[in-house]
Design a protein around this nucleic acid. Structure first.
Lengths: 252, 252
DNA sequence: GTGTTTATCGTCAAGCAGACGACTATGATC
DNA sequence: GATCATAGTCGTCTGCTTGACGATAAACAC
């Protein structure tokens, strides 16, 4: 059977981004306000069409840079901290997920430290970091009492999947360091785990665990006191990507 | 900005299947022989175009049924064994992955017990179960001394990703039972782990572990002697999907 | 100095994992 | 039928990890 362009239905392919960070002890995601129908005025995940000559990961990295200014981490330079962590999450292709046409969206998950301020095409009012519980609270009310509309399209599902991926992945990988600046303390790393998992961890056992896991942390020699209290040692992420033994999420 | 069909490039969207089973102590994958260019005559993963009105998981289930006769497991009936396990794996969209046109493939992973014989459109010579090491052995020689051509397209990468997913997922989930018939013995389950991981496990510690993990196995009361030796108790898969504590893959 | 905060080290008991001995129940072989 | 081989099942022991928590250290605020 020769190649017949009419033999398959045409699809639009997009990438959507779940960009997570930890701000003020809460796991937050980047949301942008839609400027056009459908779902005009509603919050959504950042994303856009994949271009004709682009790989999926390239498209995701481009969108991430456009929305946040973050460069994606180059997997070829693992030891070096040259940007945010970016990985493919899952693909969503319900025929009715976009009322305009048949769109298949390849969602990606990005983890970033707190630093950057949102910038959606230069217009800051159309992009914000929002706590994920707030974004996922369907039909509830935000911290300011305003009613919260659910995210556009199936983005609530995508965000929930991304959060779940992040929660489970910091158990057995060193990914939690992607939420930290280049140099960080054990306490800062612990607060990342606490924010992502939504639990309190024992500082003493946590310290013993992470410093005892080979390849997880390497001391830089410096110390800091930016948290108040006794100065803490500074660390960088070690070469290990898989943690053995893994971090254990406390019982549900 | 109104909807403009020319604003995005059209893609073809396919599903490809990594169907794994355990045969004769080896992890095997379903391969089909391509009957048309490109890669005519080469082995490939089964798959096909997503139809215009189909969800991705529906398309994957349809292809699985067409190629193997297996029904996909309905997630709404978790305790019941009504088919093979099927889950989305990852999406592959390199612009050059198909020389004919821009194709994005949403790969799925299926795990099945040994029973079914391949049937690719009724022609058995164009479908076979092949050990995954053989399919992934680039440019080597098969067990029969024949030279082995690498899989078509990027299917070697997809298969490798699927195998890795299966290897890690049987650690912390009860998915290994998807490789077993409805009723099975602890020894049969152990041989699944040994085949998928490619290691030897201590029968005594394995027995203690799986029978001690709550929700993993439920005894049916029957026994069997089909393996020779002392009769073994028969079990069904329990309700648990996540294993706590997980099975531990021995050191590399 | 005193109190507060955070970091870090130590101790102890419970539980789990790996190594491996021992026993059991079947079929195969002589 | 005795013996052997095979596979399944139960125990034991030892070392390591974990979770709970006491104790000490080093900063800052007053």
């Amino acid at each position: 059977m020769p190649y017949d362009p009419s033999a398959f239905p045409p699809f639009a392919v997009t990438v959507d981004l779940v960009v997570l960070t930890v701000r003020r002890h809460a796991l937050c995601a980047l949301a942008v306000r839609r400027g056009e129908p459908p779902f005009q005025g509603r919050w959504a995940l950042p994303g856009g069409f994949v271009r004709a000559d682009e790989d999926l990961s390239q498209a995701a990295a481009r969108e991430l840079a456009e929305e946040t200014g973050l460069r994606a981490h180059d997997p070829a330079v693992p030891a070096q901290d040259n940007g945010a962590h970016l990985e493919q999450l899952a693909t969503y292709g319900d025929p009715k997920r976009d009322p305009r046409m048949r769109v298949v969206s390849v969602a990606h998950l990005a983890l970033a430290p707190d630093l950057p301020a949102p910038r959606a095409g230069g217009d800051a009012s159309n992009a914000r970091w929002a706590p994920v519980d707030e974004l996922l609270k369907q039909g509830g009310y935000g911290r300011d009492g305003e009613p919260v509309a659910p995210l556009a399209f199936d983005h609530a599902q995508i965000l929930a999947d991304g959060v779940e991926r992040a929660r489970s992945k910091i158990e057995y990988s060193s990914l939690a360091t992607a939420f930290c600046p280049t140099e960080f303390t054990v306490g800062e790393l612990r607060r990342v785990y606490e924010a992502v998992w939504g639990v309190a961890l024992d500082p003493r056992n946590f310290h013993r665990k992470v410093t005892g896991t080979p390849g997880f942390l390497v001391p830089t020699g410096g110390t800091t006191t930016r948290q108040g209290g006794r100065p803490a040692q500074l660390f960088r992420a070690g070469g290990a990507t898989l943690l053995n033994p893994p971090m254990l999420r406390p019982e549900v």
